[in-house]
Measured scan of single mutants.
Amino acid sequence: DEETLERIAKELKEKGWTLIVNGKLITDAREALKWLLEEEERR
Rank of each mutant, 00 (worst) to 15 (best):
D1P: 10
D1K: 10
D1M: 13
D1E: 10
D1H: 13
E2S: 10
E2V: 11
E2W: 15
E2Y: 13
E3Y: 14
E3H: 09
E3Q: 09
E3T: 11
T4P: 04
T4R: 13
L5M: 05
L5I: 06
L5F: 07
E6C: 15
E6K: 11
E6T: 09
E6V: 11
E6Y: 11
E6Q: 10
E6P: 03
E6W: 13
R7Q: 06
R7N: 05
R7G: 03
R7S: 04
R7E: 04
I8F: 05
I8M: 06
I8P: 01
A9E: 06
A9V: 13
K10E: 05
E11M: 15
E11Q: 12
L12M: 08
L12D: 01
K13W: 13
K13G: 11
K13F: 14
K13A: 13
K13P: 02
E14K: 09
E14L: 12
E14M: 08
E14G: 05
E14R: 08
K15F: 12
K15V: 03
K15Q: 07
K15S: 05
K15W: 14
G16Y: 11
G16K: 08
G16R: 11
W17K: 00
W17Y: 07
W17A: 00
T18F: 11
T18L: 12
T18C: 15
T18V: 14
T18P: 03
L19H: 01
I20P: 01
V21P: 01
V21T: 02
V21F: 11
V21Q: 02
V21Y: 06
V21E: 01
N22F: 14
N22C: 15
N22P: 05
N22R: 06
N22A: 11
G23F: 14
G23D: 04
G23T: 03
G23Y: 10
G23V: 10
K24F: 12
K24Q: 09
K24M: 09
K24A: 09
K24P: 02
K24Y: 13
L25T: 06
I26A: 04
I26V: 07
T27Y: 10
T27G: 04
T27M: 07
T27W: 12
T27I: 12
D28Q: 05
D28R: 14
A29P: 11
A29E: 04
A29T: 06
R30I: 13
R30T: 08
R30M: 12
R30S: 04
R30G: 04
R30P: 03
E31G: 04
E31Y: 06
E31D: 05
E31A: 09
E31I: 09
E31H: 04
E31T: 05
E31W: 13
A32R: 01
A32S: 01
A32N: 00
A32C: 14
L33Q: 00
K34W: 07
K34N: 04
K34S: 05
K34F: 08
K34Y: 06
W35L: 04
W35I: 04
L36D: 00
L36N: 00
L36W: 07
L36A: 02
L36E: 00
L37W: 07
L37I: 07
L37R: 11
E38K: 08
E38Y: 10
E38H: 08
E38F: 11
E38R: 09
E39V: 10
E39Q: 11
E39D: 10
E40G: 08
E40P: 04
E40A: 12
E40M: 14
E40Y: 15
E40K: 07
E41T: 09
E41D: 08
E41C: 15
E41N: 10
R42E: 03
R42F: 06
R42D: 05
R42Q: 05
R43I: 10
